[in-house]
């Protein structure tokens, strides 16, 4: 464990908590893409299947459980409890266009042709594009609530910090995982235009509005 990965994990946890609190407190999931949340739940389920068979550390197991519970809880809030506030008219990204290619790629490019490893690879590839429905929804509505932009900033920062963690681990342990690194770079690049808008607008107290 290194400080970059720890801060990255905490940033990820912060993002998930921000979103959960936003939905719970405002009793509304307006502006939030339920499809992205479903994809994130799928990412955690397929990645953490080894939760009980492969103990790494208490921290690792506890965080996996927290991610699973909070992401499924968010999906529950969006599609059941506060379903009436779910904006399905703007959340129209065809996620099968993500899941099918990612599923195919995980069979073709992986470290080990075993079920657990293929599902882990699927999860890594899926996570890199899972935010697309959310970004697509914001581009359709043309704006995002400030709290949602904080959520996205924390979420985008987590994988950016993981990239620093991979550089650090390469030089200190000689560890590198090309699949995770390439997918992590794609994932972080997808946030770049949002990062620009967040830093130039939201941090100056303006509403996040995408150029129409």
């Amino acid at each position: 464990m290194n400080v970059f990965r720890l801060v990255g994990d905490l940033s990820h946890l912060l993002a998930i908590i921000i979103l959960l609190l936003k939905i719970w407190k405002t009793r509304s999931c307006a502006g939030v893409s339920g499809k992205s949340q479903i994809l994130f739940s799928l990412v955690f389920i397929t990645r953490y299947l080894d939760l009980f068979t492969n103990f790494i550390s208490v921290y690792n197991s506890v965080m996996k459980i927290i991610y699973l519970v909070t992401s499924l809880g968010t999906v529950y809030l969006m599609y059941f409890k506060f379903k009436a506030t779910y904006d399905s008219n703007h959340d129209t990204f065809r996620i099968e266009f993500l899941v099918v290619p990612v599923g195919g790629l995980s069979f073709l490019v992986n470290h080990d042709f075993t079920p657990l490893e293929i599902l882990w690879t699927f999860s890594i590839y899926l996570e890199s594009v899972a935010i697309l429905p959310q970004l697509f929804m914001i581009s359709k509505t043309g704006e995002a609530e400030t709290i949602t932009s904080h959520y996205l900033f924390a979420l985008g920062s987590y994988r950016a910090l993981y990239i620093v963690n991979w550089v650090y681990r390469y030089y200190t342990e000689g560890f590198f995982d090309l699949i995770a690194i390439v997918a992590g770079c794609v994932q972080t690049i997808l946030y770049c235009d949002f990062f620009y808008l967040y830093i130039t607008k939201v941090l100056k107290g303006k509403q996040l509005k995408l150029p129409a």
Binding site: R5, D9, H12, D50, N54, I56, N60, M63, K64, Y67, H111, W120, Y162, N165, R169, E173, G174, F175, F176, D177, L178, A180
Partner: peptide, 10 residues
């Protein structure tokens, strides 16, 4: 080469 199997990152 991928070391540190199994996956020890979240």
């Amino acid at each position: 080469r991928v070391l540190g199997k199994p996956h020890d990152e979240l």
